[in-house]
Amino acid sequence: MLRLEGLSKRYKTGDQALTDINLVVPNGQVMALIGPSGAGKSTLIRCVNRLVEPTKGKVFLGDLELTKLGSGALRRARRKMGMIFQEYALVERLTVMENVLSGRLGYVGFWTSWTRKFPKKDIQEAYRLLDRVGLMHMADKRADQLSGGQRQRVGICRALIQNPDLLLVDEPTASLDPKTSRQIMRLINELCAERGLAAIINIHDVLLAQMYSQRVVGLELGNVVYDGPPDGLTPEVLTRIYGEEDWEATIEKVEDEDEDEIGEEIDAISSPTKPEQKTIVASGES
């Protein structure tokens, strides 16, 4: 369970990114965080694992107060928080396997990471995760040889091999095409369900947020302006979050498209481990 209490962040430039945020994310809940650019979505999830240092307020993961940890304890706490990034943020010149294994860095010493001699258990788990996302055959490829969707899957593996209690997901679909975006969102959803993980997903796309989350939080200028179920996102609510726009038409139109596409897509990805399906996924992306 993640609990934010009065979390605020003001950057050195004077920009107030977050103002007094109070949120509780129970275990197993996938929470979408929506809002216009600059609303503070990225800052919020970075304040949780303290890649960005909050100015005020407290963050609890379970009973542990993250905001008062020293650097060593913070590193240990970060192992329990997997993060997935917007532009994948894979280390491009390392192999896929090294990228996945880098999720275990918090658990091994410097010498092990230098020689790449990770524990057998970790390597097996890395292979299992790569197989789960259909990329087992890519283990020895360099990360920059992969397509966008494949890279994001590796990013997901890197987060999951940490064996986290919480996933922090920053715009996972921002640089992917619509179809791949859905596959990735579905994958994240499935994996969260499998492991009972809590997740915060920053996302631009309101529709994806509605489809793949149990709860939506709307941010506007660093304030929570909506917190409720996905189907509570009425045009009025969207106007409050994003400002005036003809929301009715947008929602309707896109939702129609959805229905058609989802049917065929579910077949393609719901069991990505069957060999014949795997090839479909792979060809769809490359």
Binding site: L51, F85, L105, W114, R158, L168
Partner: peptide, 18 residues
Amino acid sequence: QVEAIEATGASRAQQMLY
């Protein structure tokens, strides 16, 4: 890329290495 490694809980030396 470095931030991503930092987020896994890696030490400074490991961030440098990876």
